[in-house]
């Protein structure tokens, strides 16, 4: 299985690679459109701000490449947020592969933002991507912005309001949490992603 991680300057790119390597996958970093387009699996990792992430994809000339991908694509954290239409963070238009606008989590005295730590997943839809992951399982989140729960949401999470934790529309998939840092639950999600039929 040939996994390409899009090297868009995301800071967590190393740990995402190691997580796939622990599962026995061969992983390459790439910012080359033809290399990305020919991979079996493509991962868009990301830690950072939406505007900077999009700017970087644009600079690398990868926006159309990612939009055109037909093989399984997994966005992680900011990478998942970029799959949506737009983000409040920097008021930026994003990839538009999934409907919805990413918004800031609203802090309150009892609700710290960033949402940082282990929180439980609530399964909304059975899907191969969630095989072996029970509703109520914990995953590690670190983010200040979140995507809305829509028809594409497989699992939701709650921090004040509910938001999308795992999404899928056809071969476009995403995890708001960090599977590379979510122990057995995260490893299972990545394994499921590798097994999704192309």
């Amino acid at each position: 299985m040939d996994v390409v991680l899009i090297d868009a300057g995301g800071a967590n790119i190393g740990s995402v690679r190691y997580a796939f390597e622990r599962l026995g996958a061969t992983v390459r970093f790439s910012a080359d459109a033809s290399e990305i387009a020919s991979a079996d699996r493509v991962v868009l990792p990301g830690v950072g701000a939406a505007a900077a992430g999009m700017a970087r994809l644009r600079e690398l000339g990868l926006v159309d490449c990612v939009r055109a991908l037909r093989q399984p694509l997994l966005g992680v954290c900011l990478g998942m947020q970029l799959l949506f239409e737009s983000s409040e963070e920097g008021a930026v238009e994003t990839l538009g592969l999934l409907p919805g606008r990413v918004r800031k989590l609203t802090p309150s005295p009892a609700l710290r933002v960033p949402h940082m730590g282990w929180n439980s997943l609530e399964t909304l839809r059975d899907d191969a991507l969630l095989a072996g992951i029970d509703s109520g399982a914990s995953a590690y989140f670190v983010h200040s912005y979140a995507a809305p729960v829509t028809d594409d949401t497989l699992a939701a999470c709650t921090h004040g309001a509910g938001f999308a934790a795992v999404v899928r529309r056809g071969n476009r998939m995403g995890a708001q949490f960090h599977p590379e840092r979510s122990a057995a639950v995260g490893a299972r999600l990545l394994e499921n992603f590798l097994k999704v039929p192309a």
Binding site: Y18, A183, A187
Partner: peptide, 11 residues
């Protein structure tokens, strides 16, 4: 840091 990151699956 790299040695830890390769093996550890918690943050």
């Amino acid at each position: 840091v790299e040695r830890v990151a390769r093996l550890i699956d918690i943050p």
